[in-house]
């Protein structure tokens, strides 16, 4: 029973990480890709580690796995935030970029030439 739960958790975690990887290839620009990475990778690693925990069924490893979960779940969204910040500041090519109507947005990033979307 334990093995069954553990395999289900590890498999679904791996599946989510695969989806994140497919998303990095399929989605059109940096910012859209960071959506896939931030969400699917966080839950994927979380499920993978919980699966490990169930599989080991030992209290001594529980604290280490909890720490690993904590650090992963804290750092992945921060990394995705920084990637997004860089993409905004450096004006990386954007998919279907529309002029930004809000003056607060316009202040933080100067208007740019329309970038042709990739094939």
């Amino acid at each position: 029973m334990n093995d069954l739960i553990a395999s289900a958790l590890v498999l679904s975690g791996t599946l989510l990480m695969l989806i994140a990887a497919v998303g990095v290839v399929r989605l059109p620009d940096v910012l859209c890709r960071s959506h896939a990475v931030a969400k699917a990778l966080t839950l994927g690693i979380f499920l993978l580690l919980v699966g490990m925990w169930v599989h080991q069924a030992e209290t001594r490893s529980a604290f280490k796995i909890l720490l690993a979960i904590l650090f992963q779940v804290i750092t992945i969204p921060v990394a995705s935030h920084l990637v997004g910040l860089l993409a905004l500041q450096k004006n990386f090519p954007r998919w279907r970029h529309r002029p930004m109507d809000d003056h607060r947005l316009a202040r933080t990033s100067p208007p740019q030439a329309e970038t042709p979307p990739r094939a």
Binding site: S34, A38, P77, H81, G84
Partner: peptide, 10 residues
């Protein structure tokens, strides 16, 4: 960043 459809950029 972790809820549907949105990520924080700045």
């Amino acid at each position: 960043s972790l809820t549907p459809g949105t990520t924080t950029v700045q």
